[in-house]
Write a protein that binds this DNA or RNA. Structure first.
Lengths: 175, 175
DNA sequence: ATAGCGATTAGATAGATTTCTAATCATTCA
DNA sequence: TGAATGATTAGAAATCTATCTAATCGCTAT
């Protein structure tokens, strides 16, 4: 996303659009462009370097000159493509909700998921009942887990296997 | 062109992209958006008004709220579409050059074009030898035109027909 | 090597832009 | 009509950006 914003900011500038239009016609170099646009070479260089960093143009030395050229692929994207966020984060959220809805009924865990991904989601949900930084005895841990499921032993073990809790001597705590 | 630059500038802003993403999901109103983005209503209003002025979003009052919605067509344009200038001006220039090259040899007009468009280009070229605001006598006019072509009478008449010069009593001047 | 030329960088300045607060406007409902 | 609520505007502060000048860098060719 950050990159796409950067791309838009780059292109939303009159001088840079002029430069791009020149490069659409033919490859060119700093001084020539500066002359065509009545700006100093320093200014053109500033813009070209910025666009090069973003992959909008490419450069290559040829004798005395450094020839800049367009990276044409960039320009086939639609505005919609560029501004639309991938909802990956949201999709994850949605999936999580579905999994939790499936394995919990009335606040109880109905079964322990066998798929690792689903199991981790369920364990993370149970972990919410523990506080960060607090040391729990085994008995306490079992009691809390028991609110969700009979088999507190398996779940306790899974919590550690999943890297959600750690055990040090006789005490447990969240990681 | 100016409009397209404006459109790009509008869209090249993080906050506005957030707003557009919200509106992609559902129509909404100032306070709600402000809340979702943790910004003040004034700020959201500022952005929405700007985008509305550019035709990116539309607004309509509904009860207490002013509902903003996307103008979706905008987002199907490609970046290339947006930044490419129509080269109309340049194409005209090129055409002009070709016409002049064809009808002038060694500074002399070889024949008077019959096509109106070409004739006007040629006449405009000859008109460069006159100064704006100066009143010329018929004899002077003929002399100047004669440098380009034998038939100064026809050309003088054509200059007036084309609206390049005007005649008042015995004097001629550029329009 | 070194002189020359184009490209780049650094630093400064002027101008634009986003955001906020606070005040005002416009509409709805009692 | 008046009170409430959401929308808008005005004005100010902070940030960002494009551009310039002047100095420096990096090739090329003598």
């Amino acid at each position: 996303m950050e990159e796409k914003l950067q791309l838009l900011k780059l292109i939303a500038d009159e001088t840079r659009i002029e430069i791009l239009n020149i490069l659409m016609r033919e490859d060119s170099y700093v001084e020539k462009i500066a002359c065509e646009l009545s700006l100093t070479p320093a200014t053109i260089c500033y813009h070209l370097k910025k666009m090069e960093a973003a992959g909008v143009v490419n450069s290559a030395r040829s004798q005395f000159y450094i020839i800049y050229s367009l990276n044409k692929e960039i320009f086939s994207q639609t505005l919609g493509d560029i501004i639309k966020k991938d909802d990956t984060a949201n999709i994850d959220e949605k999936y999580k909700k579905e999994v939790l809805a499936h394995f919990f009924k009335y606040g109880k865990l109905t079964q322990i998921p066998t798929q690792r991904k689903k199991r981790e989601i369920v364990l993370a949900e149970i972990a919410k009942s523990f506080e960060k930084g607090v040391a729990y005895g085994e008995k306490e841990v079992n009691e809390i887990i028991h609110r969700f499921h009979e088999d507190h032993c398996t779940i306790r073990r899974e919590m550690i296997a999943a890297g959600i809790m750690e055990r040090e001597r006789e005490t447990y705590r969240l990681i």
